[in-house]
Design a protein around this nucleic acid. Structure first.
Length: 304
DNA sequence: CGAATAATAT
DNA sequence: TATATTATTC
């Protein structure tokens, strides 16, 4: 549970140093090359143009622990960079058998997700489209599909709750509740981002064309966000704050690479409303309903 | 694509 | 241990 408690968010916000508050979106990034490497079966040196990556040693077959979701610690630099020779013999095992680490859905990432869904509309909000719209590097359709499933469940629950309300909403969900969990655990992520009202009543005379998005194609700065993973086959960490390098050896795994995402045809002739947009601006970070304390910078007027 | 189930992380 | 979150499978 990366949710620790119900105050994870509060802590998170408090922990957020000044600089961090300004870059909520470009905080987690993964090396796309690696992601690509996973898919392709060429563990040798599939990286044609190796970026100045940090020390990336062969990833261990397993044993990858949690990334570093320590909302408490200020500087949690996982020094455990898995020693090259990890004490044991097996040093560099082929990239095969390696799996992508679990994706971490940060509030920002989720916000983007919600925005994308809202933008497309519930009807057209399918994993593929959402993924393409998000333009998040490293994000796969499966990732979105999985999250979408949970998100839909969340919406459904909310619907049922505000609806008749008689009885209970969790009791009808098998395998989900699993015990005592009403709204103080699973919905934390979802709670961080407001859900468009339209989502709750799809069977209404509402058109799905709500767009909180800001397709500023003219924007000169566009930060690309990448999916954050725990420990990639090679090496990757989620550095949240980088204020004081332990040894001046800190490297922000930023990936400003836009990647060449090609648009694929949708299997079904969906609609022709949104011709698709290449990328969007930073997500509009807003205050949290629970806290509602600070309205982060919507637009980094500054620039990159 | 969508839901169920498995695996995994905390 | 139980619970939560994500991945994988059907």
């Amino acid at each position: 549970m990366r949710e620790e408690n119900s105050n994870w968010f509060a802590k998170w916000e408090e922990e957020l140093p000044s600089p961090e508050e300004l870059m909520p979106l470009s905080q987690t990034l993964i090396t796309p090359d690696l992601a690509l490497a996973f898919d392709i079966q060429n563990p040798n040196s599939p990286l044609p143009k190796t970026h100045h990556q940090q020390h990336q040693q062969t990833a261990p077959p397993l044993g990858v622990h949690t990334p570093s979701s320590h909302p408490n610690s200020s500087a949690e630099f996982d020094s455990a960079e898995l020693g090259g020779t990890a004490g044991s013999g097996g040093v560099d095992e082929p990239a095969r058998t390696l799996k992508r680490p679990r994706l971490v859905w940060t509030p920002q990432l989720h916000k983007r997700f919600v925005d994308a869904v809202a933008h497309l509309g519930i009807k057209n909000a399918v994993p593929k489209t959402i993924m393409q719209l998000m333009s998040v590097d490293g994000l796969t359709r499966e990732n979105v599909a999985s999250h979408l499933q949970k998100y839909r469940l969340y919406l459904k629950r909310m619907q049922g709750l505000s609806n008749g309300g008689s009885g209970n909403g969790n009791g009808s969900i098998p395998g989900l509740s699993g015990g005592g969990m009403v709204d103080t655990a699973t919905d934390q992520l979802f709670a961080s981002s407001a859900v468009p009202p339209h989502f709750l009543h799809p069977g209404r005379g509402n058109s799905d064309h709500y767009m909180p998005f800001v397709p500023v194609a003219a924007m000169h700065h566009h930060h690309q966000m990448a999916a954050v993973v725990g420990h990639p086959p090679q090496l990757q960490q989620q550095y949240r704050h980088f204020g004081s390098p332990p040894n001046g050896q800190f490297e922000v795994p930023f990936v400003s690479r836009q990647s060449h995402q090609q648009v694929q045809r949708m299997g079904t002739s969906v609609h022709s409303s949104s011709p698709v947009v290449p990328s969007y601006v930073e997500d509009l970070e807003s205050a949290t309903a629970a806290n509602g304390r600070k309205v982060l910078t919507l637009f980094p007027a500054g620039d990159d």
